[in-house]
Design a protein around this nucleic acid. Structure first.
Lengths: 339, 339
DNA sequence: TTGAAAGCGCTAACAT
DNA sequence: ATGTTAGCGCTTTCAA
């Protein structure tokens, strides 16, 4: 490993002068600096991170903790976070917890041990009390995204789930449907619960009754969307839905498969709309009606919020930011198509 | 931040004794240790990572550099790597390069500055010389995955692309097809080139001529698979393929959309098979014939290789590991189905 | 404009 | 079985 001292010896200056050159300190002669920087480049010297952060008590590093790295939603948020902080001279450490609370706590602890300057966390579940019990965490700026936890006020960047849900439902209602299925994730999760609430509000406003037999709450997986869709269409006693709204991409994908297998045409036999806006949308025909992409905006908002907390000296009261998104009309709802 | 010294003061022992307790050193009385550990737990103390690694010249951390975090393939490899190293007491830092060579070099340098113990890199492109020019990198164990670069021998974990391609092609040939389309990625990339080679070998062995007009080399994106498929089916002069093999999931997805839009039934009108084995397979009907999942095995193999290099004292000659995979018969090739 | 020395938190020799 | 001390590489007073 190349050290400051190696550069100092090679150039004949002291360690401190080399340090000054690297950090663009004004108190240094221009030629001295150029001489030193030449050697620095040649040797590929980069200051030892551990030594620097030990000395400065500042790591210029933030942590990003997500349930699952293979989830494109969190991946794209991460890209936005990384881009923002990279431009400010920070690095981003990503940890994934495989949907385990234990791993989540372990990740937080390991980030704290690294003295990172702040954390952006996409928490799992709905119980938030455990967060308040992690020692030393209150000294570290923390922003939560996408999922609200129980407990005291915290810094959040959330989606406008209710509003988004209302926009989707109103659009489907506008096509004249009155029997609308709604397939979403676990209702303990705030995101899922809020989506259902928005749906219910839209029905109320349209003076339609909310029919619980048209709602399915399952986990967020493809096969669950597949089975819930079949279940919804096969049920006896109630009339068939003429439209279905899906709570995320996975559920939609499962739904498309089920509808295709049943020989139902979209939107002819059944209209469809869905939350989120995955890249994989390009593989689907008909192109589904969805919402705008929000990943970049969530990442940006969370990163800005975190940086402002890191940079502010005094403690700030918790803030919440809601990211809304507009409809993106496709061909699955009955409109004549987009693009 | 809680320090060793805080625990020492609170328990009345010296710093060193506390350190011994934490590290399970034998030279410590059982009760002393229990007394200390109680306070350690209460305070949530974790040794300062920077101080530890500065002192030990060992960080127990490895770096994992990938082109794109939203690619599920690299994500799942990362999960396997992280699981392996976590069990050995190591952390994994993930960096993504957004397919930019500049970011890739920058990521390597930032990992070197952190004194990480080793790097697993999924390199982009096919030129490898730049790697040899990164200062100080030769002291750090490095394992490359999935893509072979030009230049000297290196540590690699690769897929058996030729063998896999041959297996896919032989299966399709076994269904009696003689006009087989092949849609794959850029031929500069070793993975893509080797896949095409395997396909050509299988044709030769079956005494069929290799018809270049049935091959498309595009980028690895969904829309490219869509357009290449339409292009292949629309071309004049040559007879239509009765089967198509896709080089990855994205291309397959685009292909399914194109075939559906053309009203062709799979496998009735056209047989289909594809490399990789994505989770999204559950959303497709008919279920495509693919290869086994290899992500976990690639990650495991790369992690094992890297750890063995980290732990070995003397320099070892570069090694290569090839991960083969078997066919997974679906419904898209003409077989009667699986499961 | 440059250099010397102290100390960030931790661990390994070396005492006791 | 426990404590003292030096030093990992860096930056920041302070002095020259």
């Amino acid at each position: 490993m190349t050290r400051l001292e190696d550069i100092a010896r090679e150039t004949g200056f002291s360690i401190k002068t080399v340090s000054r050159a690297i950090h663009n300190h004004p108190d240094i002669k221009r030629e001295t600096k150029e001489l030193i920087m030449e050697v620095v480049r040649k040797r590929g010297f980069t200051p030892n991170w551990a030594a620097q952060s030990l000395r400065n008590q500042k790591t210029n590093t933030i942590g990003y903790i997500i349930p699952n790295i293979t989830n494109g939603f969190f991946g794209e948020i991460g890209i936005a976070i990384d881009a923002f902080f990279r431009a400010k001279g920070y690095s981003t450490l990503i940890c994934f917890t495989s949907d385990s609370r234990e791993n989540e706590i372990e990740s937080i602890r390991s980030l704290l041990a690294k003295n990172i300057d702040g954390i952006i966390l996409a928490p799992i579940g709905n119980q938030g009390e455990y967060i308040d019990q992690i020692p030393n965490l209150d000294d570290t700026p923390l922003v939560l995204i996408d999922n609200r936890l129980s407990g005291p006020a915290r810094n959040y960047v959330l989606q406008d789930n209710e509003g988004n849900s209302r926009r989707l439902a109103e659009h489907i209602l506008g096509h004249g449907h009155t029997q609308i299925g709604f397939i979403t994730g676990p209702l303990e999760e705030s995101s899922s619960r809020e989506r259902l609430n928005g749906f219910r509000d839209a029905l109320e406003e349209a003076r339609l009754s909310f029919d619980e037999s048209l709602v399915r709450s399952v986990d967020w997986e493809i096969h669950s969307g597949y089975e819930a869709t079949k279940d919804l269409l096969d049920q006896k006693g109630s009339s068939r839905p003429t439209a279905i709204i899906y709570g995320n991409t996975q559920l939609l994908l499962g739904g498309y498969k089920a509808l295709r297998e049943k020989g139902l045409s979209i939107p002819g036999d059944i209209a469809v709309a869905s939350f989120e806006h995955p890249d994989i949308i390009d593989a689907l025909s008909p192109c589904p009606t969805t919402l705008e992409k929000v990943e970049a905006r969530i990442g940006q908002a969370a990163a800005e919020m975190l940086l402002s907390i890191i940079e502010s000296k005094e403690k700030m009261p918790p803030r919440e930011v809601y990211i809304p998104s507009q409809l993106v009309i496709g061909e699955s709802c009955g409109c004549s198509g987009r693009r």
